[in-house]
Simulated assay, not measured.
Amino acid sequence: MTEPHPDVAPVRAFWEELGLPGLFDVHVHFLPPTIQRAVYAVFDAAGPKIGREWPIRYREEHAERVEILRAMGVRRFPTLPYAHKPGVAAFLNEWAAGFARDVPESLWSATFYPEDGAAAYVEELVAAGVEIFKIHLQVGEFHLDDPLLDGVWGVLEDAGTPVVVHAGSEPVGNAYTGSGSAERLLRRFPRLALVVAHMGAAECAEFLDLAEHHERVRLDTTMVFTDFVPAYPVELLPRVRDLGHKILLGSDFPTIPYSYAHQLESLARLDLGDDWLRAVCWDNGSALFGRGRTATPG
């Protein structure tokens, strides 16, 4: 009998002590093998968009990583592909649909890029039942309010489909990161269901403002509060507590340099209460996405 991964037990102990049925993680990555290897290489080289040494803890093959998540009790998780240039989204979306067919507890994920035809393929994906999109401004080098995305945002606002957006300037900012394009976008499309990755770090206060003032804007906890990243501003924690109904657990598994449990421990040590932890680690994700998929990827 195969021994369980050593990181499993502390994760299970965390959610069992809270009386939860498991964890709902909205920020997990599974990518096509060729692209996954390329991403690992960028992290291994501490490339210019990484900016520091970043050892990756979970390098197992896809099937093994799925089993690790299952053993930990991560009941729902996405794949979050993200296009880094024109012409890539279609390939990523086809691959992610296949993953969603094979792994029923995964959130059917997709991506888009500012390119001709983006609104059409996003509309088709939404109609087919895609549950979540991911875009990465630092990697893709575009603004959220790029004119080529106007049609996309109209479709997504009407549908209410969540979009995980890496817009903050951590770990390395560039001309496309920060809260500026999100602020401009939400003035035009105020009911977009944006999930701001990494709590918007390093623009923490600015993205908290957006979540407080826009009904469908949420934040995910990915890597924030851990020992690996700059400290979250302590003066913002009362607002984080009050916004607990709009904060979602995120991990960035597998591309993290510490055990999965450390993300959970970092949330617990904020001392915002067990009800806050239950909401972040299960209730909010379950309320946003439900506990099971309503459509099968075609």
Rank of each mutant, 00 (worst) to 15 (best):
T2N: 04
E3G: 08
A13E: 14
E17N: 13
G22T: 12
L23R: 02
V26G: 01
L31I: 05
R37K: 12
V42K: 00
A45F: 00
A45S: 13
G47F: 01
K49R: 11
I50T: 05
I50M: 01
I56K: 02
R57Q: 00
Y58K: 02
R59E: 03
E61A: 13
I68H: 11
A83L: 10
L92I: 08
N93T: 12
E94P: 05
R101F: 02
A110E: 03
A120L: 12
E123W: 04
L125A: 13
G129N: 07
I132R: 08
F142K: 00
H143I: 06
P147K: 03
V155N: 07
H166V: 04
E170W: 06
P171M: 04
P171L: 00
A175E: 10
T177K: 03
G178L: 05
L186E: 08
A193N: 15
V195H: 03
E203D: 09
V229L: 05
A231N: 00
Y232F: 15
P233V: 06
P238Q: 03
P238M: 07
D242N: 08
G244S: 15
S251T: 09
P254F: 03
R269T: 12
L272M: 11
D274I: 02
A279D: 14
G292I: 10
P297A: 13
G298N: 13
G298Y: 11
